[in-house]
Amino acid sequence: MNPFRVAIAVARKDLRSEWRTREIVPALAQFVVLALLIGNFGFAIDSRNAAAIAPGILWLAVVFAGLVAFGRTFAAEREQASLEAMLLTPASPVAIFAGKALAATAVLMVCEAVLLPALTLFFGTPLNAGLVSAVLLATVGMAALGVLFAAIVARVRARELLLPLLTLPLWIPFIVAGGAAVQSAMGIGSGYDEAMGLLLDFDILFVVLTSLAARFVLDE
């Protein structure tokens, strides 16, 4: 079986089920707007300090929306015990994992499509191609790690508790580099190209590592 076709099929299945239930995306879209609201009142934002605070709020919203989105990745599979059925097919577990990760990445990117314009609207920060590509580049690696650990905690008690504990430390490199890239894309700080280069390196490294580890996590 062609692993790429398996991955695409799994991703399409997940996205179709999301399209039919409309469960995660509307909830997360509302969630990120609420995060901006909390950021606004938590920081007492005015026109002078908005540019300094907006990148931090952006990453907090992305990180927590990501945790919720990736935590839900295996929820439906668990409730219907359909993951075991998928693993019984000749499809490789790595391809199944890649499909789940693709779908989760797409879902988080849809939320970011709500978050970034909302950030510009509420905080008056610039919205440019540099900013969007930095967030998207970070999303790829964060999704690979997040879905791997979502698969890990899917069979553990207190999974909602464990997913952030295990995932957040591993996301820190993405926040460090992504934070720097977004800051310079918003016109504060420099080093955009170096930060984007780092983000790309982290993406490659963690996508390779997670696909190597996926076999041990899903295979049972």
Partner: peptide
């Protein structure tokens, strides 16, 4: 995670993956 996962193969694999990723991170 080792305390919360039911002891056995699954928990040991989870631990191994977390340990490897932590060391790389």
């Amino acid at each position: 995670v080792r305390r919360l996962a039911d002891p056995g193969r699954q928990a040991a694999r989870i631990g191994a993956v977390v340990g490897v990723f932590g060391f790389v991170d």
